[in-house]
């Protein structure tokens, strides 16, 4: 469903050209659980942003569910982000003046869903993510783990096919981190495609497919871990 061919992204910093991605090829099928690892600055976030239609490649071809994403106009891009893609960030990115429930409701407001439907879904999400007595609280009254759960609820409220998580536990203690991972893996078991960037090798190994990036390139792409349903794609060297 996600197909990248020869994707490059070049940033111009001053007079210099910095490569975010160099000639990346990647195929991801529906329902996969992929972890992306690699040193800082290796292009993990750039890759995720590219897939999430927050950023555009300078060259190469990107097909999402068979549709060509190169040269899409802004409103169609936004539409796809709204309906097919959920984003989770290291720093949560909740709107500080809105309550947990209001943050979760936000994507549905942008999508123009009727109020009754919104209320119903928010209520469901709040219960599902264990936020029942936190719904009226603002982000600054929530713990890190609770904030990330609100963010996950927000990312999934439009029932996307793809969940992109950029170091979702990077700002959490072990226990909350584990909770968040459990939630994400649970969602993945319900057929959502999960791409997760992480620094933590232990977490990375939980994914059935592990991608290792160095300097804007995919260094290794290995299938292993608890589920062994798929053949490894490229070279088998462990990280």
């Amino acid at each position: 469903m996600i197909s990248l061919t020869g994707i490059s992204r070049v940033f111009t910093v001053g007079d210099e050209q910095v490569y975010g991605l160099r000639d990346v090829d990647l195929e991801i099928t529906t329902g996969e659980y992929v972890s992306i690892m690699g040193p800082s600055g290796s292009g993990k976030s750039t890759l995720l942003n590219m897939i999430g239609l927050l950023d555009k490649a300078d060259s190469g071809r990107y097909l999402l569910e068979g549709e060509d994403m190169t040269g899409l106009d802004d409103s169609r891009q936004a539409d796809l982000r709204r309906h097919k893609i959920g984003f989770i960030f290291q720093f949560f990115h909740l709107v500080p003046r809105m309550s947990a429930a209001e943050n979760i409701e936000l994507p549905m407001i942008l999508a123009g869903l009727p109020s009754s439907e919104r209320k119903k879904r928010v209520q469901g999400a709040i219960e599902a993510f264990g936020l029942t007595n936190r719904a009226r609280h603002r982000p600054d009254e929530l713990s890190g783990g609770q904030r990330q759960r609100v963010a996950i609820a927000r990312a999934t409220i439009m029932r996307p096919h793809i969940l992109l998580a950029d170091e979702p536990t990077g700002n959490l203690d072990r226990v909350s981190g584990k909770e968040v991972i459990d939630i994400l893996e649970d969602l993945n078991r319900q057929q959502i495609t999960l791409l997760m960037v992480t620094h933590d090798p232990e977490l990375g190994r939980r994914a059935k497919r592990q991608i290792h990036m160095v300097d804007g390139r995919i260094e290794s792409d290995v299938a292993q871990g608890p589920f062994r349903e798929k053949e490894p794609k490229k070279n088998h060297e462990a990280n």
């Binding site: 927050l54 990115h93 999508a111 990312a155």
Partner: peptide, 16 residues
């Protein structure tokens, strides 16, 4: 600005 970026990430287009 970050709020605007976030809104864009969760599906807001320029017009919105």
């Amino acid at each position: 600005t970050p709020e605007i970026g976030l809104l864009r990430a969760i599906g807001a287009d320029r017009g919105q």
